[in-house]
Amino acid sequence: MSELSHVDGQLPHEPEKATLEGRNKVLGFWLFLGGEVVLFGTLFSVYLALRDQILDGPPPQELFSLPLVAIATLILLTSSLTSVFAIQAMHRNNRTALINWLVVTVLLGFGFLGLEIYEFIHYAHEGHTFSASAFSTSFYTLVGFHGAHVAFGVLWISLLIAQLFKKGLTVVTAPKVYVAGLYWHFVDVVWVFIFSVVYLMGKVG
């Protein structure tokens, strides 16, 4: 019975893969991310097909403010790094460090969301509302989908932090933390594409 084999309190080196349930979870999550790639791929294609249809709204060159987006990018990339530190702490079986790094990750996530909300409100004032044009609809859908992923991730990781407090680091909680880390990296990678495809290409025209 694999899930009972570590009764001595010693966690195995990779606790997320210690049980069949854990291995299933990690594999299933990788596959889920494969589906997410298709999801975002389709959203990107839609955006690329419609990005020139700005009608009377402001063109992306005027609209986008790169410094703001660059800060958001920096924040999100840093949070990816802190989530790596968290997983490393987990592999060292260091619960305190794990929790601390996850807290930092969550805080950075909140920071990113704050900036994004500010950015959207600013755009709406410029006349770049959801219903303004095909460009604006596809922009908000793509970037908004990503934002919703960040928001979900932040809530999810917060819940995991609470569970780590209560239940400790076990072969049950470890796979959860591990897949949340995978998720967080994925969300970051998507952002890198959004940054290049939406913002940089938008600026270049």
Binding site: L50, Q53, S136, T141
Partner: peptide, 13 residues
């Protein structure tokens, strides 16, 4: 929600 993805008059396709 009044989106424009497929509305040709708003640039949709």
């Amino acid at each position: 929600f009044d989106g424009n993805f497929f509305d040709p008059s708003s640039g949709g396709n």
